[in-house]
Design a protein around this nucleic acid. Structure first.
Length: 108
DNA sequence: CTATTGACTACCG
DNA sequence: TCGGTAGCCAATA
C-alpha cells in the first residue's frame, strides 16, 4: 500500500471521516494529503470509492458546487442526500458552505 | 512507455 | 461577473 495507491486510499479514509451534516472540498483533502495540486485525484478516488462506505456525496468543489452529482444515480440524488443531512442546497450549490465546511486537517 | 482523460483550481481578458 | 485557458497529477487504455 505504500505505492501510488496510497493517495487513493487516503482520500477514502478522509472522506469517510466527514461528520454528519458537514461537507468538504477536494482541494482541502488534497492539501491535507500534501498534494494540493492533485485535487482532481481526490474526486477521481471518490469515483473509485463510490461503491464503498464512503459518503462521497459530502465532498464538493471549492465553490460548494455539487460537481460530482452526475456520478450518482440521479443528478438530484446528491442534493437530496445533503439536504437530508441538514445542509441547504440551491441550484446544486451548498448554501452557507463555509458554515458546513469541514476541514480534515482541523480534526486529523 | 506514450497518450488521453477528468467529481479541480487558479489565472486572464 | 463570466467564459475560456493553463497547470497539475494519477489512473486507464
Amino acid at each position: 500500500m505504500t505505492d501510488t495507491t496510497h493517495f487513493f486510499d487516503k482520500c477514502c479514509q478522509v472522506a469517510r471521516q466527514i461528520p454528519f451534516g458537514r461537507v468538504t472540498s477536494y482541494g482541502a483533502i488534497a492539501r491535507y494529503l500534501g498534494a494540493a495540486k492533485s485535487a482532481r485525484m481526490v474526486g477521481y478516488a471518490m469515483t473509485a470509492s463510490h461503491g464503498n462506505d464512503v459518503p462521497v456525496h459530502r465532498v464538493v468543489n471549492r465553490n460548494g458546487l455539487l460537481t460530482g452529482k452526475h456520478h450518482f444515480e440521479g443528478t438530484k440524488l446528491m442534493q437530496q442526500l445533503l439536504e437530508s443531512e441538514g445542509i441547504q442546497i440551491e441550484d446544486s450549490q451548498v448554501i452557507d458552505f463555509e458554515s458546513v465546511f469541514w476541514d480534515p486537517a482541523k480534526v486529523l
